[in-house]
């Protein structure tokens, strides 16, 4: 390739699109190191990472769904369903309860995926129905907050592996797995192709419907896992409020990470960075005693900036 001769404005934008989120995280970290007392404390880092881990896990699934031109609004409700199922089946032990919860997430994902892939319902409508219905179901199963003392489950929420919280380790491993899935597997390539041009993918013999279904199942399972982890950390199952509005945080992370909502492109690591950026931002503002409303306004600005940067690059 000959040297690029794009106008400087275009180049800056292209750069921002690729690395903007990394730069923003870097700038924010630097600011905190310089101006926020105790920011470098290990305890603070732990808190931030533990808090962001469930959002990261949900965002990974969301990035996959958005890559197919879809969206999954049901993730928060699936988290609450997982919380309810864990509470119900904890009597059989932590691991069976975890498996039941993940299965619940898979079933919810299958429902949404089937509606989208086979019935042809628009993703936003299909998963909106699930957003409402699944949380309702979770509330029927477990109407109020249930505390528990299962040591295994509590350990999942608060134990550490050589100093790193288990939740964070899980989120990191899943991030790597997802990056591998998207970049290196047939399935990942097919997801991106379907998001880029569904008609062409169909004519190329790709199993479009199966891939779409599976994408929603993966999102459902990841959301369920996030629900279990959040429940384990709370040491209580709270289907009424667990995961409320997390779909918005997840979509924000994906968008801020530079994955276009128009599909055909999935940026896994940047999505994680997007989640981290939003987390760091609110932590920073809180530590400097700015009210929550300021955080929201700044977040809005960042979302707009991200969307501006990911606009379709100039057409030729």
């Amino acid at each position: 390739m000959a040297e690029a001769v794009a106008p400087p404005g275009r180049r800056v934008l292209a750069w921002a699109q690729e690395y903007g989120v990394y730069a923003a995280v870097g700038v924010l970290l630097l600011f905190n190191v310089l101006f926020t007392p105790h920011f470098l404390d290990v305890a603070n880092f732990r808190t931030q990472l533990v808090q962001v881990a469930p959002i990261v896990i949900v965002s990974l699934g969301m990035a996959l769904v958005i890559g197919t031109q879809g969206i999954d609004l049901s993730v928060g409700s699936v988290m609450s369903l997982a919380a309810a199922l864990v509470a119900l089946y904890l009597g059989y032990g932590a691991w069976p309860a975890l498996l039941v919860a993940l299965a619940g997430g898979a079933v919810a994902g299958t429902a949404g995926g089937a509606l989208v892939a086979y019935v042809g319902v628009q993703p936003i409508v299909a998963t909106l129905a699930l957003l409402v219905g699944v949380r309702g179901l979770a509330n029927v199963l477990v109407p109020q907050l249930v505390e528990f003392r299962n040591p295994d489950l509590i350990a999942l929420g608060s134990a550490s592996l050589s100093g790193v919280p288990v939740i964070v380790v899980i989120a990191a491993v899943l991030t790597l797995l997802m990056a591998f899935l998207v970049r290196r597997t047939t399935f990942g390539r097919q997801v991106v192709a379907i998001g880029g041009n569904r008609a062409a993918s169909e004519l190329s013999g790709l199993p479009v419907r199966r891939v779409l279904l599976l994408v929603y199942v993966i999102s459902g399972v990841l959301a369920a896992l996030a629900g279990v982890l959040a429940t384990a950390r709370l040491q209580a199952s709270d289907p009424t409020s667990l995961g409320l509005f997390i779909e918005l945080s997840a979509i924000t992370a994906v968008v801020v990470g530079g994955t276009p909502l128009s599909g055909g492109r999935i940026r896994v690591l940047s999505t994680v960075m997007g989640a981290l950026l939003m987390q760091l931002l609110s932590a920073t503002l809180i530590k400097h005693n700015l009210p929550q409303s300021w955080t929201q306004i700044v977040q809005a600005v960042i979302i707009l900036a991200a969307v501006y940067a990911t606009r379709e690059r100039g057409t030729r």
């Binding site: 008609a199 004519l203 190329s204």
Partner: peptide
């Protein structure tokens, strides 16, 4: 355009798709 290429993907990935 509508049924053939996946516009944003590379030449390489378009060839390998099927």
């Amino acid at each position: 355009k509508a049924e053939g290429i996946i516009p944003a993907l590379s030449v390489r990935e378009n060839i390998a798709l099927a």
